[in-house]
Design a protein around this nucleic acid. Structure first.
Lengths: 239, 239
DNA sequence: CGGCGCATTGAGGGCGGTCAATTGGTGTGG
DNA sequence: CCACACCAATTGACCGCCCTCAATGCGCCG
């Protein structure tokens, strides 16, 4: 199996054979994580970073009220806590939403990459910049879109991101999120998430059976979401 | 005047004399921008990045409804669109909230830094990671805090960030934002921003005269905000 | 002096929250 | 094998935070 990070980076730039080998060689070991298990916890100071190979993971913070806000959803190919390489102390936790397979990369290896492989370093940097661009887009959706548009936007984004790593089936994707989890992503209550999902269904924009979501009317869905994929940086060009 | 970026980075790590010189030398020229002027526009493909020396700037997107969401506030020392070095196409615009003095750094110079100065590269990368951490915190505030807590959190954050670059006067800061602008930051209406400010005032937590805000009760303000500065990465340690 | 945008205040309405109950699927222990 | 617990999905009733609309006063600038 090809490392999905390589697939993700090659969607944005060209990797040399040597660079691919460095990436493959950076993996110290592969680990399995159970669903609902924390991979990293707030306050930790990890000495290695984890690359998500399979499964879904989420960054989150818990508030004093017990409420939870999920700030990112990660899929195969995402270098989940590459951040901790430079940020050191985790200011949030990361949770496996499904059983996950992860590759572990020691921070020492990452440091060596920054010392010896400038182009590869730029691409790793790029992947964290794309994370930042996604954060900004979520801020826009949360701040200024009604709940319906916000959910529509999330679905548009996830379809494109999953397509990028070959995990979409046409306009259908496997989305193993519960409605309470979706509420924590969107900053909404479970009840309201349920109603908004039904509205998208009733309008004929999506079908949602079990954990499989199919976008049946991309045109109208992306219009409701005011979706513009620029922020996902899907252009392949030298970086 | 010392480059405030150097001050910002030295708050997080130690720079060598050579590195300081590289940073100083990276500036191609210094420019002045008028208040309310766009520094970069959505869709642009800049060939240079801008470092904010003095003033306040904001990243924002405009929606179909005409609504605006500000996704970041930048202060002196922030390398505003360092992102464009790797992201290439701007997916949002950047606005000068006040008259600004900026330093222009060509992308070619940044590329050379990544080729020759790995440690400095890591620190520039770090500064974009801190931006990302701030985005995540804003997501938490927007999603799960009531308006009062959200505003309180913004004030706590800005006080610490301005202190870091020596722009605070004790617990007082100069905040040249209008209430409509604040609304676009917080995702609230102007009317509600006004009411929430008054509540903070009436509770004796802050004073707000002209564009000078003083935090008179940090204890209670940070409690309302559930403020934890970890995400700002104010620790000085090797990166 | 007149125009414009910001700060402020009041009135009324709606989007989304809370509380609560029902249904159904799943896992567990008696 | 069933009783029971637990959680996700769904629905209804009601509530409240925050929005919209509107008006007033004020400061700044042409």
């Amino acid at each position: 199996m090809t490392n999905p990070l390589i697939r993700k980076l090659e969607r944005r730039d060209f990797l040399s054979e040597a660079e691919r080998e460095v990436l493959e060689g950076a993996v110290a070991r592969v680990k399995e994580i159970g669903a609902d298990e924390d991979m990293v916890r707030e306050g930790d100071r990890p000495t290695e970073s984890t690359l998500l190979l399979e499964g879904f993971a989420a960054r989150y913070k818990i508030l004093a009220s017990g409420k939870r806000q999920i700030t990112a959803i990660h899929i195969g190919g995402d270098f989940i806590d590459l951040h901790s390489f430079l940020l050191h102390t985790m200011d949030h936790s990361i949770l496996a939403l499904t059983p996950c397979k992860i590759a572990v990369v020691p921070h020492g290896t990452l440091r060596e990459i920054t010392e010896r492989h400038p182009h590869l370093t730029r691409l790793l940097w790029l992947s964290t910049l794309i994370d930042g661009a996604i954060h900004r887009q979520w801020l826009v959706s949360m701040g200024r879109l009604p709940a319906l548009g916000q959910l529509a936007h999330l679905l548009c984004e996830l379809l494109l991101r999953l397509q990028t790593v070959g995990q979409a089936d046409g306009n259908g994707i496997r989305l193993p999120f519960t409605q309470p989890e979706l509420g924590d992503v969107l900053g909404l209550s479970t009840v309201h998430v349920n109603r908004v999902i039904q509205e998208l269904r009733n309008e004929g924009l999506i079908t949602w059976r079990g954990d499989t979501v199919t976008i049946t009317d991309w045109e109208r869905l992306s219009e409701i979401a005011e979706f513009d994929p620029t922020y996902l940086n899907l252009e392949r060009e030298p970086r």
